[in-house]
Amino acid sequence: MFNFDWLSGVSQETAKMIFLSLYGVIGLLVLLLPTEYVYEGIAKEDRHWWNNLKLWSIAVLSILASIYYHF
């Protein structure tokens, strides 16, 4: 049990899909955050699209997913 023997039948390809799905779920959750929340701390008149932390997060997750897809 301690060694996760019950998952020994899962192939490496399936395991990779699990990781890629995880990134997809995280990305979805990030997109669901209210925009107002990700700008908190910046005055309304100073907000620009490049301050949108959702975009930063999605970009990082996309690169991460491409690494796992490739290797």
Binding site: N3, L7, Q12, K16, I18, F19, Y68
Partner: peptide
């Protein structure tokens, strides 16, 4: 050596189950 996801029965310290449950 070039598989980022290692099988569950690998002898290395980094089986995918450990990476998912323990690390992630």
């Amino acid at each position: 050596h070039f598989d980022i996801i290692q099988p569950q029965d690998t002898k290395s310290p980094f089986p995918w189950t450990g990476i998912l449950f323990g690390l992630t």
